[in-house]
């Protein structure tokens, strides 16, 4: 198939190929395309192998008797949770949920004005909407644990630093999702109101909020789910919640107690996930 000297012709006559000649390019491009795919795969494999060498990925070591024995021992201890310990960690568990609630609510409320500034159909002035979006994107590049680590260094160990970290994290997530929802609302009511002389505030209160509110609540619930999971590990950097206890138990090699904490966290996360998914389905 490649023996036909089509490639040259295709190259020269590329700008305006008549529709009748359509099969020709697909035929001649098949060879190069296959090469391209092959090279892409080869390059990909080289990247993976080089990466593997850089991090000393040692599969022999991973599956060696020693590490398998270590993992097996830990899994064995994890499978026998110490249920008597559950009562003692309940306060920390509640604190975890409190951090998530406070962080989600404050962050979401702060996100509303910024989401309005970012949405092009509310804020047509690019000089405001584009910087607002850039700031949002920058906030979203920093993971919640990094925020927590920084805030612990500033405000000291405790739930307050964790709450601040989740405020920033929720703010970025809710603001982004909400401004995208605002941009997708039906422009009809907005145009009707503008035509009848409504000002910006009236436009937002009567045109945007009724349409965007269910989406906003749904995103807040989703963020809450993410935040509960995040709050359960904030303690690893000292930002309050159950993570602190988990860190201590893991460090003192009490895997039975660690297992209790992990299982309890899983149960709470799953319950909140299911409740929130149910509510979100009812909202939308």
């Amino acid at each position: 198939m490649n023996s036909a000297p089509v490639p040259d012709a295709a190259e020269v006559g590329a700008p305006a190929p008549p529709p009748s000649k359509k099969p020709a390019p697909t035929l001649d491009s098949k060879g190069p395309q296959r090469f391209k795919a092959l090279f892409t795969w080869l390059g990909f494999i080289v990247v993976i192998v080089v990466c593997g060498i850089r991090v000393d990925a040692n599969l022999v070591q991973l599956f060696s008797a020693n590490s398998m024995e270590n993992m097996g021992r830990i899994l064995g201890e994890l499978s026998r949770p110490d249920w008597s310990y559950a009562n003692r960690i309940m306060p920390a568990m509640i604190e975890t949920v409190q951090i998530a609630i406070a962080g989600t609510i404050i962050g979401s409320v702060l996100a509303v004005p910024v989401a309005l500034l970012c949405a092009v159909n509310i804020m047509p002035k690019k000089i405001i909407s584009i910087p607002a979006r850039i700031v949002l994107n920058l906030v979203r590049t920093i993971p919640d644990l990094l925020f927590a680590a920084v805030f612990v260094a500033v405000f000291g160990i405790g739930a307050f630093a964790g709450m601040l970290a989740l405020i920033f994290f929720s703010f970025g997530l809710v603001a982004k999702l909400t401004y995208e929802a605002i941009e997708a609302i039906d422009p009809g009511p907005l145009e009707a109101m503008t035509a009848s002389g409504a000002n910006k505030i009236q436009l937002i209160v009567f045109g945007v909020i009724p349409q965007a509110l269910p989406y906003f609540f749904s995103y807040v619930l989703y963020t809450f789910e993410v935040n509960v999971r995040a709050a359960s590990v904030l303690g690893f950097v000292g930002a309050g919640g159950i993570g602190l206890h988990l860190d201590q138990q893991l460090n003192s090699l009490r895997y039975d107690r660690a297992s209790t904490i992990i299982l309890l966290t899983l149960v709470i996360v799953l319950v909140i996930d299911y409740a929130s998914t149910y509510l979100r389905r009812k909202l939308l």
């Binding site: 604190e95 409190q98 609630i101 406070a102 405000f155 000291g156 160990i157 405790g158 739930a159 307050f160």
Partner: peptide, 11 residues
């Protein structure tokens, strides 16, 4: 109730 658990005394 959630805010009541946040003790602000670090800075």
């Amino acid at each position: 109730w959630s805010l009541s658990a946040m003790k602000f005394d670090g800075i």
